[in-house]
Design a protein around this nucleic acid. Sequence first.
DNA 1: AATATCATAAACAATT
DNA 2: CAATTGTTTATGATAT
Length: 449
Amino acid sequence: MEYCQECCLLTRRGSMWGKPLCKTQCELCQHNTHTHTHTHTPMSSATTHVSPHTDRTCQSPLNMPPFLCFSSLHEESGGTHPLYGHGVCKWPGCEKLCEDFGQFLKHLNSEHALDDRSTAQCRVQMQVVQQLEIQLSKERERLQAMMAHLHMRPSEPKSSPKPLNLVSSVTMSKNLPPASPPNLPQTPTTPTAPITPMAAMPQVPSVLGGANVPSMGAMRRRHSDKYSMPLSSEIAPNYEFYKNADVRPPFTYATLIRQAIIDSAEHQLTLNEIYSWFTRTFAYFRRNAATWKNAVRHNLSLHKCFVRVENVKGAVWTVDEVEYQKRRSQKITGSPSLVKNLPSSLGYGTALNASLQVGTRTHSDRLAGLNRRSAHEELNGSLDHLDTNGHGSPGYSPSAHMPPIHVKEEPLNMDDDDCPMSLVTTANHSPELDDDRELEEGNLSEDLE
DNA sequence: AATATCATAAACAATT
DNA sequence: CAATTGTTTATGATAT
């Protein structure tokens, strides 16, 4: 990594959203020996270039947020930082223990430098903030209406019709030079834009009243996959956001399915339970059910990492972590910083992987074997995998290395076909009132504060 | 330009 | 018989 001698902006090649990087002169430092990353949003044309330094409201010469502005870090050497508290890095999904502030700064600069991953995380955070603002605005309106209805005098002056773009003040405005035009939050999404959280940012989620919901588009920006960030780390801080906002999660179906499965208590789910996880976890998957359910089934069948296991009560799907990581590591070879993130994304550690190696076989082999087995054989042929309840877990299944496997009997709580009202209406209710979150208590929510 | 990955659609079979 | 589940093929868009 190199930094511009003049303005300390990280010089880099390769952009997050597309190829074009503009070798232009830095507007601030007029230094043209390095390449600044200019904004290339997925939905914008590749020729839209916004200088990261054009936002003059930025107090920092770099137009960067405090946590990305190196000069500001120096100023904060006193020991406080919005991203540092209780000895822990508070970067979304990080929580790295830092003994002192110096170590934190070091960690911040090394692990959360201005790179694609950090930028992506920033953008997600930006959406979270905006989403919360929208929601706050709605709640405020509701309160006003209630008070008006009850003939009460407003105790608090109605704060100015909320600035939708709160991002500008604290979080992002100045930053995200590489990715976000300053006016992003107000600009309508390009109709053809893929609905990634990034792209869909400006749009008011349908669950919150917006009606402008583009049809299901392809997942075009799978930054989490690409940059190998643990899914749980990325979603966790934005759990409420994805749950309520009709924004497509930037993950592939395979990634999501795996997450659903490893989030479950038994690390195995029936197809219907996977469906439920999708609808429960993402507002986006509460519509176009036929489409995405087909995609889920397609992915389950297609990818070797998903193993169908016959159980007494039917079939459940499990994840072969070795296979999953195989695929994944193939995609990210050549990027040490990415590879190093791999272990954190493994739900069960290396010991599990080692043990999984034994049982690995080809998908067709597995399926052939699985389909031939009867429930009876499962129970009697794999005694060493019986748990105390006598339930069988297939020896070749990754689940065999997990906590005891039970045959799931709980009925599907949701009839999730095409927009269940109960889910859609969760947008405006208090999260505390949710009672269907036993699965979310796992990876998805563990990072939530 | 070639290749890989992914989303989507759809046909079809097997199972429930 | 209908619905669900699972498999497979095809196609187009995008990324590398």
